[in-house]
């Protein structure tokens, strides 16, 4: 691969932007580079990152999903209620269950997108509202606090890979959950790049009609992408509350915007057919880093959403400008 074609890749561009942003933040406040801060930055990537992998796959297929935060909370809450009801104390089964619930809800999206042929944005707006409304209106609104959270989950999510003691005597650890994130990322990458179902996602995003003619099963691919997004969301919902020791069914509202922003930032096209796991991971990192670093840079957190919004606009504007040049 030549140097120029490497430079043209969106992954390279966002990587360079991240490096420059890190240098800039480090200049404003060297505390940015402290190991403890780095660890918490990594930690903050995990939930957004895993969900972004699902959204990435949906976007490559030419769709979009704004329902997954609702799915995540539904899967999480039902799983916890089930654990309370049965007194089950384990880790693997609950995560499996949350994933399965997410997959089931994803199938709902896929059904409406494929069989009813409705614009994915509208469908997932609807299913998102439906699921969150059902969760809060029928199942329950009460927050499950740390004293009631199942200890196996908390213990699992507390595992650190390594830990240090900061200069202020505080303890900082690199959570082992990052391995789960990296594992999922690797799996999704391999799936997209090296399996036929992954290539069918790209083919469908490129030209659904041609994909059908070549002999891809469009229905299966559609179900696959939305179920993958739902399953990852379900898993992550449970992981999220295990990591913060607090299960609030109102949580994660509005998160879809951040995740979509991250995926687009990472070079995926909202029109489908383009995107990569590495780019998405960079996009997530960029967004999370900016959000987490405002305090370090002595900027009031109320500015957070403005900054995120501006980054989204800037990134999409650059993409739009680049695409227009390519067409011209």
């Amino acid at each position: 691969m030549t140097a120029t074609s490497l430079l043209r890749r969106p992954e390279t561009v966002i990587f360079l932007v991240i490096v420059m942003a890190m240098l800039a933040i480090g200049l404003v406040n060297p505390a940015f580079w402290q190991l403890g801060n780095m660890f918490s930055l990594v930690r903050a990537n995990i939930v957004t990152g895993i969900m972004a992998l699902g959204v990435l796959t949906v976007m490559i297929s030419g769709g979009i999903d704004v329902s997954f935060p609702a799915f995540a909370m539904m899967a999480m809450y039902l799983t916890l209620l089930w654990m309370f009801a049965t007194g089950y104390s384990g880790v693997a089964l609950p995560f499996g269950m949350a994933t399965a619930i997410g997959i089931g809800l994803g199938a709902l999206n896929a059904f409406f997108v494929h069989s009813v042929r409705m614009i994915p944005l509208i469908v997932t707006l609807g299913t998102g509202a439906l699921v969150r409304g059902f969760l809060l209106g029928v199942i329950g609104t009460s927050t499950i606090n740390i004293d009631r959270m199942p200890t196996p989950l908390i213990d699992f999510a507390r595992i650190d890979l390594l830990s240090t003691t900061g200069p202020d005597g505080g303890h900082a650890g690199l959570t082992a959950m990052v391995l789960i994130y990296l594992g999922f990322a690797l799996l999704v990458h391999l799936m997209l790049r090296h399996t036929m179902i992954g290539r069918s996602v790209f083919a469908m995003g490129g030209d659904p009609e041609a994909a059908r003619r070549v002999g891809f099963n469009i229905r299966r691919t559609t179900f696959f992408v939305y179920c993958l997004a739902g399953g990852l969301a379900g898993f992550t919902g449970l992981l999220h509350v295990s990591m913060i020791w607090l299960a609030n069914p109102h949580d994660l509202a509005g998160m879809e915007l951040d995740v979509i922003a991250a995926v687009v930032l990472g070079g995926a096209s909202i029109f489908g057919g383009r995107g990569s796991v590495l780019g998405t991971m960079f996009g997530v990192f960029m967004l999370v880093m900016v959000n987490n670093s405002l305090i370090i840079m002595h900027i009031s957190t109320t500015w957070q959403r403005v900054v995120v919004g501006v980054i989204v606009i800037a990134a999409t504007a650059v993409t739009a400008w680049r695409d227009r040049k390519r067409i011209a």
Binding site: M196, G206, A210, V214, G215
Partner: peptide
């Protein structure tokens, strides 16, 4: 309209149906 995939490489366009 050729029914090709613009976002994929020539090689993959050629080999896809074989793989399928």
């Amino acid at each position: 309209d050729f029914s090709l995939f613009g976002n994929l490489t020539v090689a993959e366009n050629l080999a896809l149906s074989n793989e399928l």
